[in-house]
Structure formats: C-alpha cells, structure tokens
Write a protein that binds this DNA or RNA. Sequence first.
RNA 1: GUGUCCUUGGUAUAACGGUUAUUACGUCGGUUUGUGGUACCGACAAAACGGGUUCGACUCCCGUAGGACACCCCA
Length: 465
Amino acid sequence: MILKNKKNKKENTKKSKAEKTKKTEDVKGGEKTKKTWSALRGMHDILPKEEKYWKSMYNTASKLAEYMQFSRIETPILEEASLFVRSIGKGTDVVEKEMYLFEDNDGSKVCLRPEATASVVRAYVTDGLWNNPQPVKMWYWGPMFRHDRPQAGRYRQFTQVGFENIGVLDPAADAELILIAFNFYKDLNLPVEIHINSIGTPEERERYKNELLNYYRTKKSYLCEECRKRMVKNPLRLLDCKEEQCQGVKEEAPQIIDWLSEASKSYFMKVLEYLDELGVPYILRPSLVRGLDYYTHTVFEVYPVSGEGAAQSALGGGGRYDLLVEEMGGKSTPAAGMALGVDRSVIYMKDYYQQNQLRVEKDPYDIFFAQLGDRAKGRAMKILEELRKSNIKIAFNLYKNSLKTQLDIANDLKVPYALILGQKEVQEGTIIIRDMESGIQEIVDQKKIENALKKKLKKFDELAK
RNA sequence: GUGUCCUUGGUAUAACGGUUAUUACGUCGGUUUGUGGUACCGACAAAACGGGUUCGACUCCCGUAGGACACCCCA
C-alpha cells in the first residue's frame, strides 16, 4: 500500500499541470484518492531521535526499582470499566469525562486504563499476592489513556512509571516512595520540588470539608464564579483557585492539618522527619488534595523547578490509599503508591538539558566497517557476525558501494578507526585498519582483527586495568 | 468539555488575489569507477482535507482534521 502510494506521488510530480488536472478528473471518476493519516488527536509518535531520553528514563526507573526491591508488574491495558469507577471514584473528572469507554464484542463495558493503581490492586487481590511476604512492592511502566483536551505535556495516550507498596502502614513506606520520585529526577540531573500534605482519613476530611464550606459561605460574595461552582461540586479544590479575587479568602481559610486527629498528625510528622533525615527537600502545601478518591493521609506531587515562566503542571504524584484494597474486594490492607508522567518528564528533560547545555550521550561507535565490491560485502557480513560478541561497537552500511561515501559516514560518526575490506584484501585474507585521525593504515590478518582492534581502542585498556 | 490563536517540502522558513512558490538544513547521487571532514554540481521534496467567494485562491470566508496556549482537571 505504502509503496504504491509513493510511486503514484512520484509520477504526479513529473506530470504537467494539464495532466494533473486530468488526474483530478480521474479521481472524481472514482479512482483511489491519495489519503494520508495524522495520528489521532492527543496521540503522538515517539521518534528515534527522542529515544535516548526515553531510554535513560526507563533505565533510571529500573535501576531505582531494583535497588529499592520493587518487582516489575505488567497489567492489561484493557480492563473492565467498573474497576476504575469503583477505585478512582464516580464523581471524579477522570471517570466522568476522560475514560476511553466502549463495549466489547460480548457487550460488556471495558475501558483503556486511565491509570494503573486500580489494576495493580486488582492483581494483588485476585492473584493472591496478599499471600506473599508483605509488603508487596511493585513497579510498572506503560501507556495510560485519558480522553482529555490535549495540551503541552498532556496527551490522550501517555506513559506513566509507577511504584506501589501494598501491605504495610509505616511512614517509612511513604517516605520511601517520595525518595524514589525525588531520586528519579536527581539521577537524571533534573531539579524538582516535592509538595506534600496529609488529607487524613475520610471522616477527618469530611469534617474539614464542612468547616471549609462554613467559612466560604460567609465569604461567598467575594468569590469568583468558578469557586461558587466548586463549593457545590468539589470544595477541596477551592484552595487551588488562581483568581486574584479569591486569594485573600484562601489565605484565611482553615487548613486541613488542624482538623486531623492526633494519630494522623503524628503519622504525617513521622513521614516529614524521615524526609528531613534523608535530605529530601519538600514544601508543605496545605491546599494539596488529589484528584482521585482513594487517597488517605499522605499525598504529594512533584513539580519541575523552572527558572521563570508560569506554574507548570505536576510531573507526578502519589500518596497513601489505605482503603482501596478493601474497596476492591480484598482484606483491609494499607497501601501507598506514586506515579510519574514520563512524557512530561521527557519534555522537562529536553528543555532543561537544552537550557543548561547538558547532553544525553549515546554510546559512541568504536569502528566503522567499510566494504568494497561484491565479494567483500559477503565477507564483511561474515566478519561482522564473528565480531558480534566482541563488545566492540561497530557501525557499518552494507548498502553503500562507494568507499568515499562509507568513509564519509565514518567521519560523521566520529569513529577513531575504520576497517576497510576490498577485493584484494578478501583474496589475501587481510583487512585494513585505518586511523581516522592520522590517516595511517595498517594491514592485518583477518583472523587477528579482534585483538588488533582491542589493542587500539582505549576502552579495552581501561577494562583491563 | 469551554475559549483564543495557528497549519507552506522531513525540519526551519520567504513572498504573493495572477508566470515555473523563496531560501537554508536534510536526504540521495556525482566531480573518471579503492580512501573522510571543505568545496562545487545535480536530483528529491510542500500549500492538511473539503466546500464557497472570484475571471483567477497558497493568499479571503466557512466546515472538518490536526497543533499550540489558557481554563476545568490531571501525569
């Protein structure tokens, strides 16, 4: 299909205008029209040139997970819709307007996962993970879907990396998760801010909500339109309002921390103490509430530290969800978790690296292997195959026949040495090693390539030491 | 979901209601077929899609799609 398309296109360009007109008529006459596709709204391709960022994120997460003893879990992308309605909460925006919801062939309601915590908890409950040594620490990396209006760093399909700790109620677990989030960015050389708060138990939160509403009712005449809606729909969000006119009211508002029980408060204090001990900087933000219903006690979000510019959206966040496992049909089990937005983090990384002239280096090639002539090409493939396990990183291009072009590529790749194999060398069983800087060439026996190269390459010297 | 702005080769761009749509990067090829960086030459490659206004639309208008930004919300 694609090939055919391309061919047509090429022919078109060579046609005169008159012929083009004719072609249009043909199309109208029922011939196939040229169609191209853009990605669906909010979906994007991750191109090869961006891969280095994604790779370094994945490797960083994976290494952290291993050190902190989180094991990888992969759950399906498609889940029963009610799983998320139950876990995330019926009234939330994520469930109400952002789910990719559709009917499966048998008529059951399924959806593309908007997040993974619910799935991980489902696995914990139904796959018997509660019989394993507790807590069960798991991490995941994969695509999530939310049907939202796209914006910078907000896509309908996006990648999250997340960590879940199920089965233990201990401030150390909360601190550990925050530490992982912090270290993830630290290892990538990205400065971040941790915002943290505690929203206590549902009962405490309910009491606070009433108190907040009582307070806001007395100030109703000062409020913006949006805030009046929030009073009915989502009172805790009142504290997020950015309108000038509401700032004064906000500052005087009661804070949730004052409405927590002693137990909740001291739990939260302990989390903060651990963070202090670890040297993880945080900002207490009494207005921080999270969008999903299942959170209890500790909640936190991670923000980029931007030199200038507007407040950016969160890179990630998480918190404790002690009631979710039971809500999902398991035994009452405490748990906590967090998730980071990889797409957003990649954007931040690109930006920050560019501004600060940092680079993600790809592993450079050691050698370029140039071949010349039919027989040499076959022989080159064979030699490349023999060197595959040698740890020497060799670039090659078997489809270019001119030596000039191949050395040009070698030059672009900035390799220190090139191998040159032509008809003559094939006959003699030798190969040329060319020093790309000095231009000095040396002829060696084909059987001794590996050793000869290793002698020349510095990295093998260092390994030997 | 609401609002504002935008859409010219792969990327970045220029001009124009009327000749063959500018330039750079890029890609491919070449400068006597076995030797790189420079240079020179050549080729490739574009008006998102559909409709309207007009003698004539890449240019003006409308719709669709996509993008960007803000809000709601969130990763």
